[in-house]
Design a protein around this nucleic acid. Structure first.
Length: 823
RNA sequence: GCCCAAGUGGUGGAAUUGGUAGACACAAGGGACUUAAAAUCCCUUGGGCUUUAAUGUCCGUGCCGGUUCAAGUCCGGCCUUGGGCACCA
């Protein structure tokens, strides 16, 4: 038999076709196996797959194949997050209908997926732009409306006066419109919200479930995003007698309040503010929030002339309007204690407001005249009525008790988390199913009239506004309640709504209902979710919220959608993220053409651990290609010696064969551990490279002996199945070439014998005061005592410690001995 | 600015629980094979110092300091880079 060259193009085509023909990726209902739902974040169909996608889906495919080989019943679906801004931009710029643009992109990207050999069950495909999908966005919206979880309120948007249109943050560059370059302003619109704040506590509580399977850092980010803080609501009063409540986390400083600040958009100001104050408010109401909060912008404020009364001491203090106070947080107003808050301190200095120390530094008393910044540490309360003399930590509790007692305040919890604004003044999205009737007000569209279908015959050329607004046939309708004339909501939903429940739809995409009960209960929750770290907060938080809502609606049994999460790093080239503008994009298609999908996949897994950024290198790809070839040639050379049932179990082996067999079992152990426990695929590949290098070191004639053939067979029976999760096509080809008739995809993952993984001889290092000075080879069964004795008997060590006092000897079993000396 | 990460040879990275820093790979250099080239196979490779050379010696994981017999790993303080910051998805 002649040795064949590694022809990856032929091999990959052949096996991709066979996998499809035999339908091996089709999910089967099999209750005899444990289910495993593996999900990768679905892509936005931007047109072409980029390396970030390839990386994400390669990691997913490895896990899907690994879990399948380990006897699990795996659900591994793929779909399209297909509503969004880019489709609309394409329509405006190139006059392509968003629907056509989206469909074309999906079909092209699907062909790219096919070339990579991913194990998706395409029967489970989901696309969010389809009415049969987004109908259920609308249906859930109606349920949430009924429960008061969907509501309308005023909220600012970025507005370009020139284009007369709402801009996404992305479309605002340096405060200017990206198309016409005119100044962007803020404008208040009446918009829809989901009341995610109701679930703040539950979202935090869920961390108890998630901490076993989610990266710590993601949970920390979510926790900080929700931003729970406990404190006191204090009932300040205006001079006029009106209530003026504020929330503070530092009630221990309430006697040091010297002014109050209110948000510019506070409704209270609308009636009273005039003149200069009015101008100030108008100026900052139009300032984009990001800019207003940015620390490099100076904090600005203006005295309203009004006075507020501190209920604790009756002091009258001035009320300012400040651009740094947010209407969304707390009550839209704050108390300011310049002596103990840096921002307040700077503000007080700027506007010449008095500063009053109420917490003293126990080590060195504070002096207002010499203070250059606020004192924010703990200390002793002074000039603070009932808590004077107390430690301020204790003071927080005592003053809260006091306030509740006197009825001038009550303990409260505040969250940084804001309700989810879902209204988008755009076309290519899921229509919000509401109508407005002059008589009946806001009316949700009844279930039997869902879905409210997004019209597709639209004109983008006329105006920059959402085309929906100009479509009389869409806008004009009848009121479901009274039958009179009504107009439809023309806003569409944030695309994050679409991606908040797609994982449940995958379980039964053909269902006429939202999803099939049995299927969703069998598969949910997702056992392993994989996607970019950039989604650590928003997408993952919204999906968790939505799952909780669905659970409360009785539609899902789980409260958390994703049991385990892997956040993969980005693909970098030349120090920055691959992007068109940087001109450092590597096209997956080209690399597949030159090296094959197997090599691309291998490199994606080898170049760095999955959760770290990956540095693209053309040379590195070549190295992976070389490794595949190296295994290929080894198998080609020896495949005739292979016997399918060959096993060296119980056979007397030469030293050389014993050594390589031990190496094999160590490799299987390490690769299995790296994949299953550590999710660190780069080291798993390195292990297999080491084994391959070792195979090349074995004298050829060793394998032609009868025992050698058995060892070789065991090697092939383990190495090729292991490789199949990394380089599935070439692994199948090698498997076939040694005469195995069945597909590797359904083969078992190889096992190993623990006793064979133990090295007979190990190296023990001898240190003196922590520095390596000598070493020896020893049997792996050497005891601690023997190690210590050997170290002290070692010539080199003896020399170094002679005349010195040995303080102690520390032995780490199997590793080293450290002799600590003095003098 | 706020929240979260990361920083190790010429390069990507390894070091699983505080225990031999640099596995594996790339690049570079050398050798074998070849008429030649490619491919392949084999060897060397963190830096400095010093005696023909060694089982020698010192330095070395962003910077400064600390804990420890022992620190890439733990603690405190910085610096730089990246992700997110609510309408990109």
């Amino acid at each position: 038999m002649a040795e064949r060259d590694y022809n990856f193009q032929e091999i990959e085509k052949k096996w991709q076709a066979r996998w499809i023909n035999e339908g091996i990726f089709k999910t089967r209902q099999d209750t005899s196996k444990k289910k495993f739902y593996l999900l990768e974040m679905f892509p936005y169909p931007s047109g072409r797959l980029h390396m970030g996608h390839v990386r994400n889906y390669t990691i997913g495919d490895l896990m899907a194949r690994f879990m399948t080989m380990n006897g699990h019943n795996v659900l591994h679906p793929m779909g399209w997050d297909s509503f969004g801004l880019p489709a609309e931009n394409a329509a405006i710029q190139n006059n392509i209908p968003p629907m056509k643009w989206t469909r074309d992109n999906i079909s092209h990207m699907k062909s790219q997926f096919a070339k990579l050999g991913f194990s998706y069950d395409w029967d489970k495909e989901v696309a969010t732009y389809k009415p049969e999908y987004y109908k259920w966005n609308q249906w859930v919206f109606c349920r949430m409306f009924e429960k008061g979880l969907a509501y309308k309120k005023k909220a600012p948007v970025n507005w370009c006066p020139e284009c007369a249109t709402v801009l996404a943050n992305e479309q605002v560059e340096d405060g200017k419109c990206w198309r016409c370059d005119s100044e962007v302003i803020q404008k208040e619109l009446n918009q829809w919200f989901f009341k995610i704040t109701v679930y703040a506590e539950k979202l935090l509580k869920g961390h108890d479930i998630l901490k076993a399977g989610w990266p710590e850092r993601v949970l920390v980010m979510q926790k900080n995003w929700i931003g729970r803080s406990t404190g006191l609501q204090v009932n300040f009063k205006l001079e006029s007698g009106e209530d003026f409540p504020i929330f503070t986390t530092r009630p221990d400083t309430v006697f040091g309040v010297t002014y109050m600040v209110i948000a510019p958009e506070h409704p209270f100001l609308e009636t009273i503010a005039q003149g200069e104050v009015r101008d100030f408010i108008e100026r900052f109401k139009n300032q984009p929030i990001l800019e207003r909060l940015s620390e490099d912008k100076e904090k600005e404020g203006i005295d309203t002339g009004l006075k507020v009364i501190n209920p604790f001491n009756g002091e009258k203090i001035p009320l300012f309007v400040g651009n740094f106070v947010l209407m969304e947080y707390g009550t839209g107003a704050i108390m300011s204690v310049p002596a103990h808050d840096s921002r307040d301190f700077a503000f007080a200095k700027k506007y010449n407001i008095p500063i009053k120390v109420v917490i003293d530094n126990p080590d060195s008393p504070l002096d207002i005249n010499t203070m250059t910044d606020a004192y924010v540490d703990d200390g002793i309360c002074i000039h603070s009525g009932p808590i004077t003399g107390m430690n301020n930590r204790e003071g927080i509790e005592k003053i809260s008790d006091y306030a509740e007692d006197k009825g001038i305040g009550k303990r409260d919890v505040n969250y940084r988390l804001k309700d989810w604004l879902i209204s988008r003044q755009r076309y290519w999205g899921c229509p919000i199913p509401a109508v407005y009737c002059e008589k009946c007000g806001t009316v949700p569209v009844p279930d039997d009239q869902l879905p409210v279908v997004l019209p597709v015959d639209v004109d983008f050329q006329g105006s920059s506004q959402s085309p929906l607004k100009q479509m009389d046939s869409f806008v004009n309708t009848t009121c479901p309640k009274c039958g009179g004339h009504a107009v439809r909501e023309t806003d569409t939903m944030d695309t994050f709504v679409d991606s908040s429940w797609y994982f449940a739809k995958y379980t039964s995409p053909g269902s006429k209902d939202m999803f099939d009960r049995d299927a969703v209960n069998y598969w949910m929750p997702v056992d392993q979710y994989i996607g970019g770290i950039e989604h650590a907060v928003m997408h993952l938080l919204y999906a968790r919220f939505f799952t909780m809502v669905l659970q409360d609606l009785g539609l899902l049994q789980c409260s958390e959608p994703f049991t385990r999460l892997l956040t993969q790093g980005m693909v970098i080239k030349d120090g920055s993220k691959m992007s068109k503008s940087k001109g450092n994009v590597v096209d997956p298609d080209e690399i597949i053409k030159s090296y094959g999908a197997d090599t691309v996949r291998l490199f994606m897994l080898f170049a760095s651990p999955p959760d770290k950024d990956l540095d693209w290198s053309d040379k590195g790809v070549e190295g992976c290609f070389r490794f595949v070839g190296r295994v290929w040639r080894f198998v080609e050379k020896f495949r005739e010696l292979y016997t399918p049932e060959g096993s060296p179990e119980g056979v007397n082996l030469s030293t050389e064969l014993k050594k390589i067999r031990s190496e094999l079992h160590r490799t299987i152990k390490a690769v299995t551990y790296d994949i299953r426990e550590r999710m660190q695929y780069n080291t798993a590949i390195a292990r297999m490279m080491e084994l391959t290098n070792a195979l090349y070191q074995v004298p050829e004639n060793e394998f032609s002996t009868s025992e050698g053939k058995l060892v070789l067979s065991e090697i092939f029976n383990s190495l090729i199945p292991m490789l199949s999760v990394f380089v599935p096509h070439v692994a199948e080809e090698m498997w076939e070439s040694i005469g195995r008739p069945t597909l590797l995809y359904r083969h078992n993952w190889p096992g190993f014998r623990e006793d064979l993984t133990v090295k007979e001889e190990i190296e023990i290092v001898f240190q003196v005061n922590g520095k390596n000075r000598s070493k020896m080879n020893a049997s792996s069964s050497i005891t601690k005592e023997e190690m210590e004795k050997a170290a002290l008997d070692d010539g080199k060590i003896k020399e170094l410690i002679s005349g010195k006092q040995v303080v102690k000897v520390i032995a780490v079993p199997g590793k080293l001995v450290n002799v600590v000396i003095k003098g």
